[in-house]
Design a protein around this nucleic acid. Sequence first.
DNA 1: CCTGAAAATACAACGGT
DNA 2: ACCGTTGTATTTTCAGG
Lengths: 152, 152
Amino acid sequence: MKLDSLDHQLLKYLQQDAKKTTKELALLLGLSNTAVYERIKKLERQKIITNYVALIDKEKVEKDFMVLCQVKLSQHVKNNIIQFEREVLKLEEVLECYHVSGDYDYILKVLVKNMDAYRKFIIEKLTVISGIGSTQSTFVIKEVKNTTLIVS
Amino acid sequence: MKLDSLDHQLLKYLQQDAKKTTKELALLLGLSNTAVYERIKKLERQKIITNYVALIDKEKVEKDFMVLCQVKLSQHVKNNIIQFEREVLKLEEVLECYHVSGDYDYILKVLVKNMDAYRKFIIEKLTVISGIGSTQSTFVIKEVKNTTLIVS
DNA sequence: CCTGAAAATACAACGGT
DNA sequence: ACCGTTGTATTTTCAGG
């Protein structure tokens, strides 16, 4: 579970380009092919690397209307919380959901095609979940930065 | 640029597991190896697939203190905006930054090790950017959902 | 951690439906 | 557009030291 400097470098490279071959990485790190291979396998076994994914261009698939939606539950009973969190997991429009401090209970990052789709999402999918008190929408004017790279 | 049902399925699979081989994908889609290969290459050429990345476990690299930080600029002049956005891109603690509607101008998703690190981030990195008016922090109690999968 | 070799996959180009 | 086949190149994977 202890990561050395080479592991950190390796993680950084793989978080930027998972298609890098062990050969390329070996060259970058000054290690042999197999040493890199074994390190990657170890990181996968330890679930430090959870998975490999393709990232796609939101605009090119017509999904570039993003809204940060704050949600307040009507009552903070356990059942409401469990229920809301379970339902949110099922909604494909919700990319991220955080239980947060402050006035509202949750902040959701919602991605849809356009305002119409958002209206539909709110009316037909979000507010039909029982236990929701109120919601407030903050619209994204521009995505300035969005990275999956965690520097550790 | 037009995507058919098979392209969409392909994107969905690759967004969930980029390590799937063309052989496996061919089986899933009911296509030949070469057909799948050509489709993937097309999606890459069209930059619909922008890149492939490894995702890592935040907790296991001791980076699981997340804060949503709202930022207001002191004046909405072009220079302030340009400057702020340029500086934010450089901050590795800022995973996401959105220019938004509402009371505040920006919402930042910030990831650090702990509260101490956050305090340090605010004092030494964020508020030293010129043109910043005020900030407000919303702390993440629990990450309920976080996916990179965009269903199109 | 290394070298070296086998197995699997990716990549490219063909003619054919 | 898709299929199948044939290559070859490259990469992954795993011995054994």
